[in-house]
Write a protein that binds this DNA or RNA. Structure first.
Lengths: 221, 221, 221, 221
DNA sequence: GATGAATGAGGCTTCATTCAT
DNA sequence: GATGAATGAAGCCTCATTCAT
């Protein structure tokens, strides 16, 4: 199953998928609130009214998009850690996640930015797929703790949150930097618009930080 | 300088501050897009039109709020690490940040959720205060690397991003959990609505993770 | 010819009649403007598009319905007064009309309520069947006046209008009361939702009022 | 209190009244469903949005209009029968009602046609003013029955309904005839579009019919 | 400066109607 | 003839912003 088959492509077969793919592009381009249903329709090559044959309303479009993408992300992550030795699963997970961000920047942008939108989506909407995601990541950590490989002073679900926070922030920084081709390569800690960096390579940084921290003198055999 | 003097209080003196404080409450309650200028005016005890004597428009209200809060956050963080030995500054920084989140949940909600929002603010808006924040945090890390205390394999500005990601995610989880008093204390990695936890104590977890990672066998003198 | 054969039945044969019957049910249930063509189609067991094979548009559906029903009403009324002595024809007419209302409440509701509706139907639409109805009733009165049995101070067509007004209002009151089974049997002149009464028996009241009025001691020459 | 002061005039003072007056004109002209809020606004000389400062929505406009008008009608009728000898009150009531129709044809049209509109208004909407109207008329009849002047074989509230039916039908016929200046003066019982007649004079016809019926030789005891 | 009634542009959505199959 | 997915015009309503008082 490819990424595109889930959300649909421009030349895709069924309308629902094409609308969802268009919604993703437009939400990424404008943001949910600034996105116009008519623009999504135009982008999908359907009439405005057609959207309402497949989705209840504009909100449903975002929720459906999120569910489709998040389900797919979870699926890909599960595949990525399958057959991997327990001790290497966290690395595999992180790398796979950032690879997905790299491959589907529009999806990453919607997941990263739009879904924080409080009212309708993080508060009222229960969001079971994101819970799945956290459960998957938390499970890897908890298993490491049970095997005695990972310290138990941090609750696994909190650790999962923290790792997700890192990944999400890196994804956001990368996605926003990507937007701006005229980005000045100013040195230092940069402006609010971060410089471009290799998001896939960043997986190693995340794993390094999570595994052994920043302190220099560390692991002894 | 107190927190309130920056953003204003209900019984406060000047109108500008009262409007800003009201905006923060309403943005936290409804989200930026769902917030109504008239509700902010009512909450501030002024007429709708009065808001436009102090702010250019609704966007300006959010930007001003963000700048005031972020300036104050940076100020508080600078104070928190002042006079602290270099090796302990990161801990002080993290603890101070999460304490601020704890003390001003409405502010935390606006900074955490609303500012990620759409195009208008993370893309078009330059956001120098957030850059300051990252520079401050990145500087602490860079200094540690220069002193040879911290590993240099992760660029300091990337490390700063990752740490901010953790802090932001914890703040978000805590703020959203706070919203829902009827939260079931179900076990496991939880649902999308995280269980309540002690946000201030979480500072230790962040520092532990950042310092030495999750791996069990670690630092030897 | 039965009532149903004109407007069609659920299990009926040809599609046109089934659509018309469904339209009557839906118009009675929702009102013309709130009725959805798709609901009529569903109720008739045909596809939406099929309706347009038999009717020009939604308006045509109501007009056709009205013409079919009114033609049938006029037919039934003509039959009802056939062979009846001239002096008893008015009574027969009134009784037959209210009996039809009783037997076909959905039809009565459409004729009574929907057709008064806006411009489209009472203003722009010529409505020859209703003219027939008034001509039939007016003819009975005019004949009575010519025979010297009825006073001539009221023009026969005005008298016909007044009698129709009574019948129509009684039908409306009865139909609307029928809607609400939980009707409180509060005394007095009632609320806007009238109490249930025997619509067929009401024929005697109409005839009594029309024949001799309300005055108790009737004038003697 | 004049008629206009209740519903408002074009050059009137407050906006609410002007909007209500415009709504009455537009509803009479187009019918409720075909009426456009923007046309009402234009007719009232206000912006579209202004209407929503005074009324909740389009439905509220019709309900408010009905309540204002019906309250005023009831008031006028009460004044019309005040001080009139009991035996003459019915005549006074009928004449006053038809005079109101004559003086305010747009109001009559809205009351007569639009309010039959089933779903929203006769079914869901309780309509206390119309109940008042019926109570007033029914009270006059009941009083006549108690004084022994009127026959008691017809329940007073049914008699009230029947009289209202006559008045309403005459009003409708007159209002619709008025619409069409090019009306052919075709003889006989006419088409569906009735010929013009003197609506005020019609009061005598109604009273004659109600009082003594159509029978020429009236029954002697 | 302060007010808040008024504005009016513009979006989401509905639904009668069409037409390729 | 029958279908029903697709169309797209058009309306109600919201709400940020203005400006006369």
């Amino acid at each position: 199953m490819t990424v595109h088959s889930v959300v649909g492509e421009r030349g895709g077969g069924d309308k629902r998928a094409r609308i969802l793919a268009a919604a993703e592009r437009v939400f990424a381009r404008r943001g949910f609130f600034a996105a116009r249903v008519s623009e999504i329709a135009k982008d999908a090559g359907v009439a405005d009214g057609t959207i309402y044959l497949y989705f209840k309303n504009k909100d449903d479009l975002l929720i459906s998009l999120f569910e489709a993408r998040m389900t797919q992300v979870n699926e890909a992550l599960r595949v990525a850690i399958e057959g991997v030795p327990p001790g290497a699963q966290l690395h595999a997970f992180v790398r796979a996640y950032l690879q997905l961000v790299h491959d589907e920047p529009a999806a990453a942008e919607v997941l990263t930015i739009e879904l924080r939108q409080s009212s309708k989506f993080m508060k009222e909407y229960e969001n079971p797929q994101f819970a799945d995601f956290l459960r998957l990541l938390g499970g890897i950590i908890a298993a490491g703790q049970e095997r005695g490989e990972l310290a138990e002073d941090i609750p696994s679900h909190i650790a999962a949150r923290m790792i997700f926070g890192m990944l999400d922030e890196l994804a956001l920084a990368w996605v926003l930097a990507k937007k701006d081709a005229t980005q000045r390569i100013s040195g230092g800690a940069g402006g609010s618009k971060p410089r471009k960096f290799d998001i896939v390579r960043a997986a190693d940084w995340v794993v390094a930080l999570v595994a052994t921290g920043l302190k220099k003198e560390r692991t002894t055999p």
